[in-house]
Design a protein around this nucleic acid. Structure first.
Lengths: 161, 161
DNA sequence: CATAACCTTTGAGTTAAGTTGATGGTCAAG
DNA sequence: CTTGACCATCAACTTAACTCAAAGGTTATG
């Protein structure tokens, strides 16, 4: 199978497949005399596994250490442990998200609960003191784990050309 | 207040404060005759607001559009709407995380439920067919939203120097 | 006046997971 | 023998939120 055929069967791009190879994720890549890459049928499975693992939250780095060279020869214990760790990671993130969401909901309520007898600026100060007041040890989203939120203002060129 | 003093009071670095200014997040920056930046006391509040919003999942881009030049003059409606959108974003992510976690847990169970009468390679094929079999329209973590997981093999130099 | 401790700007580096472009080889059809 | 569709490599670009280094000005102190 050429790289173009493999790309079509997996729905990936040629460049992505080459990138995975350069990242050490594809080991079963031979060359024809003319230099073209040629793949065995299992390459489709391997690529599907990779994308599935990515969707589950694994980085390419993690996938590389877990993927065996032979699809029938998994490192059973390492795999199970990695899966358990990933589940724990997700659970931790769920906890943080829950707290962040609760804080935001509370903030919305606080803003909307403006007493009738104060003006906007005074309400702003009141809310502000609540927001910045409880900056104690309340674990919110950890810096670096937050990249997933905020899809606002994604000005990605529509690329009609 | 000099930039160094502001940095100490907020716990940020000088470079980060300059970076926020260049990103359009700090508008109240004057200069002394020698060229040094000088800040009013409210700058502390503004920086605290920025870091708090970041922890809640807002990007600097979003924060910039929401932060008023005057801390008493918020765009009430835009703010409320942004907060609601962020809550919705978090909820959507929670849904995806829940499904991803459930899939991983199911996979762990599946691997461990190896029938006694088949060998490892056969079990691998069996599990593999389950993993890759249900690649239908089950919404897992969306590509791009997954960066938060996978803190494995973070080889960050300890930087003792 | 030398030194340290500040401050300034500018440009480049960091991470992850690729994409895009330049430049050129290979191959089948007409 | 030329056109078009493939394939190859390599370097550079992308995003976000910074950090770091280089090169130099300012200020207080001995």
């Amino acid at each position: 199978m050429t790289i173009g055929e493999l790309a079509q069967r997996t729905g990936l791009t040629n460049s992505r497949i080459r990138f995975y190879e350069s990242a050490g994720l594809l080991k079963t890549v031979d060359r024809r005399p003319n230099g073209y890459r040629t793949y065995p049928p299992e390459a489709v499975l391997v690529l599907e596994l990779i994308t599935t693992a990515q969707k589950a939250g694994f980085s390419l780095d993690e996938i590389r250490t877990l993927l065996p060279s032979d699809l029938g020869q998994w490192n059973h214990d390492a795999l199970i442990e990695a899966l358990r760790r990933k589940v724990a990671d997700i659970a931790a993130l769920q906890t943080r998200l829950k707290q962040s969401k609760a804080q935001l909901v509370a903030l919305i309520r606080d803003i909307e609960a403006k007493p009738d007898d104060i003006d906007c600026a005074a309400n702003a100060r009141r809310v502000l003191s609540h927001v910045l007041g409880n900056e104690v040890e309340r674990p919110t989203l950890a810096a670096g784990d937050v990249k997933l939120l905020g899809k606002a203002s994604r000005r990605r060129a529509t690329k009609t050309g």
